Simulated assay, not measured.
Amino acid sequence: MTQEFSHDEEPQEDLFNFPCEFPIKAMGKTVDGFAQTILDIVLKHAPDFNAGTMEMRTSREGKYLSVTCTIRAVSRDQLDNLYRELSAHPLVVMVL
Rank of each mutant, 00 (worst) to 15 (best):
Q3D: 08
Q36R: 13
H45W: 12
V74Q: 14
A51W: 06
L79R: 03
D40M: 12
E61S: 13
D77I: 01
T53H: 07
E55V: 11
L96A: 05
T37C: 10
V93N: 04
L86Y: 03
R57M: 08
R60C: 00
L39C: 12
H89Y: 04
E21D: 13
E13L: 12
L39Y: 05
Q3E: 10
M54G: 01
T58W: 07
C20Y: 05
M27F: 04
C20G: 06
D14L: 14
E13K: 12
V95P: 00
F49Q: 01
S59W: 05
M27E: 06
H7V: 10
R72E: 13
E4Q: 14
F16S: 02
P11D: 11
N17R: 13
P90R: 13
Q12K: 13
L39I: 15
L15I: 04
D32E: 15
C20R: 09
P90G: 02
A88W: 07
T30F: 08
M94Q: 14
D77V: 01
R84D: 15
F18Q: 02
V92L: 07
L65E: 02
E13I: 14
A26G: 04
R76N: 10
F5L: 12
G33Q: 12
A73N: 06
D48A: 15
K63H: 07
E10R: 14
P47A: 14
M1Y: 05
Q36M: 09
F16C: 03
L96H: 05
E61Q: 11
D14K: 08
A26N: 02
R84W: 07
K44G: 09
T37E: 10
L91D: 10
E21N: 10
I38T: 01
Q12F: 15
H45Q: 08
A73D: 03
T58K: 12
P19K: 14
F5D: 03
E55G: 02
D32F: 08
M56L: 11
D77Y: 04
P23Q: 08
M56H: 03
G62N: 11
K25S: 01
F18W: 09
I41C: 06
V31R: 07
Q78W: 10
G33A: 12
Y83H: 15
E21L: 12
H89D: 05
F18L: 00
D77R: 11
G33Y: 13
N50C: 04
F49I: 01
K29N: 08
E4D: 09
D48F: 06
A51R: 15
